[in-house]
């Protein structure tokens, strides 16, 4: 830059400034290019009454069957030995049922179905680098195969440790998680697990209604249920709600606060990039320092 004179420098700085201002004017619309994240008043949910579940695992079979995964023979699901270990949803199945000891009646174990909770303020939707996750009007949080790059940041972000990854596929590895039977419910069908459940452990309905149903159950049977609907307020609320007779922490539910998981990181992100003002201000500041230091050097040089 030695050859460059002061006027040139000012001219270039101005050009950069105008370009930056133009960019920042365009920025708000671009910033809205975030994934679909609807929080509909009428969003659906499922109420899981764990005191009813008999551990037949038909839901596991129906889930695989309806998602084109290897489901096998439905009879095989009666095998109880599988409850000796705790399982998690993965690439072989998006929902699993685990067994827990019932302190009140040892002969009747507690069975707990696990799947994506479909958060109202989902961490995966906020985190995903390409916006491959979206929260739909129906309440479902779904994953878009065509956008995903396989970075697994959703797995880091999810407070329930739900998304699973195809670690042994070299090409097109998928993120696996319950999609709340998005395609079935769209066509007026029930989610596969809800439809097959023989004992009505699972109730599908409007989330706001389900909370009422759950409250009534707790009111009418105070001995049967803990006074806690898991998912009503946890991480800002979830579409799937649980009732239980035993403390949720003893059923391996994570202890979570009421704040939505993406709250802090999103405010930081939006603070740093508020209309691109902070980056542009930093650019201008550094440009100013550069200009002053250069001139200081030059005048010192002339003085010698």
């Amino acid at each position: 830059m030695n050859k460059q004179n002061r006027r040139d420098f000012l001219k270039s700085v101005t050009t950069v400034g105008i370009t930056a201002a133009g960019l920042s004017a365009a920025a708000p619309t671009k910033l809205n290019a975030a994934p679909e994240n609807v929080l509909s008043e009428d969003r659906m949910g499922v109420l899981v009454d764990t005191t009813v579940c008999i551990g037949c695992r038909k839901c596991e079979w129906a889930c695989k069957e309806s998602h084109g995964m290897h489901a096998g023979d439905i009879e095989d699901y009666d095998e109880k030995g599988i409850f000796n270990s705790r399982r998690r949803p993965d690439h072989t199945g998006h929902t699993v049922v685990n067994e827990y000891e019932n302190d009140k009646n040892r002969s009747l174990p507690i069975y707990l179905k696990v799947q994506c909770m479909h958060c109202d303020r989902p961490a995966c939707v906020s985190a995903c680098i390409v916006g491959a996750f979206s929260k739909k009007e129906s309440g479902a949080v779904i994953w878009d195969d065509s956008k995903c790059i396989g970075c697994r940041y959703c797995m880091v972000a999810c407070p329930f440790q739900i998304p699973a990854f195809d670690y042994h596929k070299a090409l097109e590895p998928d993120i696996h998680k319950c999609d709340f039977c998005f395609d079935r419910t769209k066509n007026g069908k029930l989610p596969a697990c809800v439809e097959i459940c023989p004992v009505e452990t699972l109730t599908y309905g409007k989330r706001s209604d389900l909370i009422q149903v759950a409250r009534n159950k707790i009111k009418n049977y105070p001995d049967r249920y803990l006074d806690h609907i898991f998912g009503e307020t946890e991480v800002g609320g979830t579409s799937w709600l649980y009732l239980a007779s035993k403390e949720f922490e003893k059923l391996d539910f994570p202890k979570l606060g009421k704040n939505p998981a993406p709250g802090v990181s999103e405010s930081i992100q939006h603070g740093i990039f508020a209309y691109f003002i902070p980056p542009i201000a930093l650019y201008a500041l550094l440009g100013g320092i550069m200009w002053i230091s250069k001139n200081r050097d030059k005048s010192e040089g002339e003085a010698h």
Partner: peptide, 29 residues
């Protein structure tokens, strides 16, 4: 290294067209 760790490394350019302003990873990328 990012490409090596990505499950779908051949889609590494996706953030250029699919934006998510809420994602810290998008900003880093």
């Amino acid at each position: 290294s990012v490409a090596v760790d990505l499950g779908r490394y051949y889609s590494i350019w996706h953030p250029l067209i699919y934006w998510n302003g809420n994602s810290a990873l998008f900003e880093v990328g």
